[in-house]
Write a protein that binds this DNA or RNA. Sequence first.
DNA 1: CGCCACATACCGACTGGTTAGTCTGCGCCG
DNA 2: CGGCGCAGACTAACCAGTCGGTATGTGGCG
Lengths: 196, 196
Amino acid sequence: MSTAAEGECSVPQRLLAAATRLFAGQGYDRTSVQEIVEAAGVTKGALYHYFGSKDDLLHEVYARVLRLQQERLDCFARSDAPVEKRLREAAADVVVTTIENLDDTKIFFRSMHHLGPEKLAQVRAERRRYHERFRALVEEGQRSGVFTSATPADLVVDYHFGSVHHLGAWYHPEGRLSAAQVAGHLADLLMRALRP
Amino acid sequence: MSTAAEGECSVPQRLLAAATRLFAGQGYDRTSVQEIVEAAGVTKGALYHYFGSKDDLLHEVYARVLRLQQERLDCFARSDAPVEKRLREAAADVVVTTIENLDDTKIFFRSMHHLGPEKLAQVRAERRRYHERFRALVEEGQRSGVFTSATPADLVVDYHFGSVHHLGAWYHPEGRLSAAQVAGHLADLLMRALRP
DNA sequence: CGCCACATACCGACTGGTTAGTCTGCGCCG
DNA sequence: CGGCGCAGACTAACCAGTCGGTATGTGGCG
């Protein structure tokens, strides 16, 4: 009766997965709690046993993807390779992980305003930390002269992340370009834009 | 009693303006028809006198901004300046008009999925035409050798428009950069990324 | 000019349907 | 037997859209 394989995960994980898929497909508001629990093969009692509210569910989705991206970026930034290599790899990796979690990303930028104020502030703060770490890489390259300083670093970061966030609007896994190929091209564009 | 000056516009225009502001601020689903008519200083009878449904209202917002952007792009593309000048001006102009109509843009990419299937198809078709005209400029420059062909033209277009769409997420009119300054920087980034 | 017929513009109470969240209870496991 | 994990009916609120009604014009006709 349910769409997903029900037996292979714990109930909260199944609920989170179903919610992610449905939120990404039809948006937060258009997805009723009833639909989520049916897709997960349980009932509302189960959902409200594990989550405080529908908002909580959304917040969990956000927390998961934020944690993942922060970890990956840290990994690249801490390397001791030259800065242009570190930035290029970080820029490409964020594209790959975004494509690998396209549902989460779609939700992220489409449903942010559905979060309550305090959860929103928390998500925004984490997001800002992520941006700042990325920007630090750009600034490092600008100071050392391998990148042009013609454009302020924060604008460069917003430029790149803008196109990353937009991936959900056009990328299809069955398309002619693989995630790695797209990532390579977008990273190239960024690096060329930063050439002195 | 109402928030906006009521007397200076026709009722349908006031309704459209109120809807735009509210949709951008709280999203389509979180905005009730009651809120819209109160903000416009009328009642539901007036709204349903001029618009067929809440969807219609949203669709009108889309149609307005699509028409505007298409006109502006046509204007730049038809010039007989060298292609790098035409593309640069078009790329900068789309940033300026996006910033000047930030509310519309926010709605555009956040609430698309609220449109019914046939209206959605129509909006998408117009959007695609816009993209294709922009892409044609990039391809022209690539053929004539003033732009690098390292990156496929459609990816370049998605790269630029991605950051344009993302403007609504970070740009604030009171910030330190004017719309024209941001437009100049983003156009510079694009042109540098296209240098051979 | 006075008056009627009709239309356009708008009002606001009402309805049918939907939804998030609650609460009581039941079955299974330790 | 006791409590954890969950079922599912229930409720209170809300909301898009409807519909009969009202007011303000507008054109024709006697």
